[in-house]
């Protein structure tokens, strides 16, 4: 099976993170950060998947 480590629990504060992204609406690379989304008053939904070129 898989081997994963402990994770954030429900109700815990998520540490700020930054990700380099490919943004399909711009057709370009970009950066996104949780701090920025929080400043905009937005909810964030993270959607992890195993690999590109497979089903999501």
């Amino acid at each position: 099976m898989s081997e994963t480590t402990n994770r954030l629990q429900i109700g815990q504060s998520v540490p700020d993170f930054e990700l380099t992204t490919y943004d399909p609406t711009q057709g370009d690379f970009s950066e996104i950060s949780l701090a920025e989304l929080k400043n905009q008053g937005k909810w964030t939904i993270l959607f992890f998947y195993p690999a590109d070129f497979t089903f999501v």
């Binding site: 815990q12 998520v14 909810w43 964030t44 992890f48």
Partner: peptide, 14 residues
């Protein structure tokens, strides 16, 4: 990464 989905509120709470 496994197929994980996480909803985070505007104040950063999971």
């Amino acid at each position: 990464a496994l197929r994980g989905t996480f909803i985070i509120s505007p104040d950063g709470t999971l």
